[in-house]
């Protein structure tokens, strides 16, 4: 092999390796424990997370509150987006659902919202007919989920404190 080919190969691999070390391994090595909001999931809540993943809720909803908007931006009323997200909030999650688009509101602190937070019946009704509850909503109607699936999904929603 020409030396230049060897340089290319090793140059590429070393650059990649450094990239992985600096931008993945070092941040991953920071000791992060669970925050106050994090707690292990029950069987049913984990199932709810699986449904969240399968139905791709994270393409419309984020689960990260950034510092400048924390306690300020309005979902239903001023500031109810909730406090800034901390790394420890995600301690028990795999995968995480940080998301990249907000076609719908951020759900990080959904369960702390007044009125709908712990309201199981509201959630189930909203999943079945989002536009019935919130005219103009873009959300798909999840009336194709079974009753047990809706319960599990709602149980997961209630963990979003």
């Amino acid at each position: 092999m020409k030396p230049s080919l060897i340089y290319l190969t090793f140059g590429s691999l070393i650059s990649l390796l450094l990239g992985i070390i600096v931008t993945i391994i070092i941040p991953a090595a920071e000791p992060i424990g669970p925050s106050e909001l994090a707690r292990p999931y029950t069987e049913q809540e984990l199932w709810g997370r699986e449904i969240y993943k399968r139905e791709g809720c994270h393409y419309c909803h984020t689960q990260q509150v950034r510092a400048p908007e924390a306690n300020a931006v309005m979902i239903h009323k001023r500031g109810d987006i909730g406090p800034e997200s901390a790394p420890g909030d995600y301690y028990y999650q795999s995968p995480v659902f940080w998301g990249t688009e907000r076609q719908g509101p951020d759900l990080t602190h959904l369960a702390s919202r007044e009125g709908i937070g712990n309201n199981v019946a509201w959630h189930i009704q909203h999943f079945k007919t989002p536009r019935g509850i919130s005219p103009g909503s873009l959300m798909p109607s999840f009336d194709y989920l079974s009753e047990a699936e809706l319960q599990a999904l709602t149980a997961y929603m209630l963990t979003l404190k």
């Binding site: 590429s12 691999l13 990649l16 995600y90 301690y91 999650q93 995968p95 940080w98």
Partner: peptide, 30 residues
Amino acid sequence: ASIIIFVPVYAVGNKIWDPSGAFTGMTDNI
């Protein structure tokens, strides 16, 4: 160069050694 870099990038990014394909916590998003 593209192939040399992309193959390991995909393998790491998709946690190819684990059928769940996901890391845990903040690392997953990173």
